[in-house]
Amino acid sequence: MTVTIGNHVIGGGRPAYVIAEIGLNHNGDVAIAKELIDVAVAAGADAVKFQKRTPEICTPEHMRDIPRETPWGTMTYLDYRYRVEFGLEQYIELSDYALLRGLDLFASPWDVPSVKFLEKLQVPAHKVASACLTDVPLLEALRDTGKPIILSTGMSTMEQIDAAIDVLGTDQLVLMHATSTYPMEPDEANLRMIPALRNRYPGVPVGYSGHERGLQISLAAVALGAVAVERHITLDRTMWGSDHAASLEPTGLTHLIRDIRIVEQALGDGVKRVYEGERAPMAKLRRVSA
């Protein structure tokens, strides 16, 4: 089974769909968000993804008044959450900016009003963050949009994943194996979950959402059949904010996508053949002909 997002077909032997996760790494600045979109374009990504929250819903009550040191001074945690959220006008500007550069743009909504917000943008798909996999009202709202849904499976049991899929259905679903530690260590990657998820949910495309340092694990995921790869991106890992340290800088994203395409070429089709480049060595080295 394949899933179509924008002009891209996911699964069915197509090239891996690469999502550059901007998340909140724009730090509430449209100019930084545009720079990150430019980074994604230059590297050859297929999509950029943001996160959308309604702060008064998503911020736990016990955390709202906690002081937080920010680049804009000391403010409550709730005020900080408002400070880094984009409004509709800003999202329209960013959506147009990405579209004109050939990228899909969508987001992870963290609450039902954010689903309605993103629907106003006519996004081509929605992403369910791992933290939201058990939020049934949110899943129902996403299902009811009729849009393709990408479901990350970090911090979740198989029973919880089953329950989420029971709500969402499988017709337009892409599963993403993930481990929600930031940054993730190699011994927590458990990449064999990619074929395990594929076997458990036949016909559902399975990709990989990574939070590790470096490129090797994401490349191994592609070798194991991941049909989509999502990685956080940043202009600089030393920037202020919670996700920058586990993100790829521009050169890292460029190298990742370059190497994904090389791995895809190297996987071949599984049909044994003698290549033209082997004929000269065969004539030189093989003593006994068949």
Rank of each mutant, 00 (worst) to 15 (best):
M1G: 08
V3R: 12
V3D: 13
N7Q: 11
N7F: 14
H8K: 15
H8V: 15
V9Q: 14
G13N: 06
R14G: 15
P15W: 14
A16N: 00
Y17I: 05
V18K: 06
V18W: 13
A20L: 10
G23D: 06
N25F: 08
N25R: 06
N27Y: 00
N27T: 03
G28N: 07
A31S: 13
I32G: 12
E35N: 15
L36G: 08
L36H: 08
D38P: 05
V39I: 12
V41R: 09
A43I: 07
V48H: 02
F50V: 05
K52Y: 02
R53S: 13
T54Y: 15
T54W: 15
P55T: 01
C58H: 08
H62A: 09
M63E: 11
R68E: 04
R68M: 14
G73D: 06
G73Y: 00
T74D: 01
T76L: 02
L78I: 11
V84T: 05
E89K: 09
Q90N: 08
Y91E: 06
Y91D: 02
L94D: 07
D96M: 13
D96W: 11
Y97N: 06
Y97H: 02
A98Q: 02
A98H: 07
R101Q: 00
L103A: 04
D104R: 10
L105V: 03
K120N: 02
K127P: 00
V128D: 03
T134G: 01
P137T: 05
L138I: 03
K147Y: 04
P148D: 05
I150Y: 05
L151E: 09
S152P: 03
T153I: 12
S156V: 05
S156E: 09
S156A: 15
T157W: 10
E159Y: 11
Q160A: 14
D162H: 13
L168Y: 03
L173C: 01
M176C: 14
A178P: 12
A178D: 06
Y182R: 09
P183H: 03
P183Y: 07
M184C: 15
E185W: 12
P186V: 09
D187A: 06
D187P: 00
A189P: 04
A189V: 10
N190I: 03
R192T: 13
P195Y: 10
R198S: 15
R198K: 15
N199I: 12
N199P: 06
R200W: 10
R200K: 13
P202N: 06
V206H: 00
G207Q: 12
Y208N: 01
Y208E: 02
H211R: 05
H211C: 04
A221S: 03
V222H: 01
V222R: 04
A226G: 02
H232I: 10
L235H: 11
R237L: 11
R237H: 07
W240K: 01
G241V: 02
D243S: 10
D243L: 08
S247W: 15
E249S: 14
E249I: 13
P250H: 02
G252T: 07
L256Y: 12
I257M: 04
V263T: 14
Q265T: 10
L267G: 00
D269W: 12
V271P: 00
R273F: 07
V274Y: 04
G277P: 04
P281A: 01
P281K: 00
M282N: 03
K284S: 11
L285S: 02
R287W: 10
V288G: 00
A290L: 15
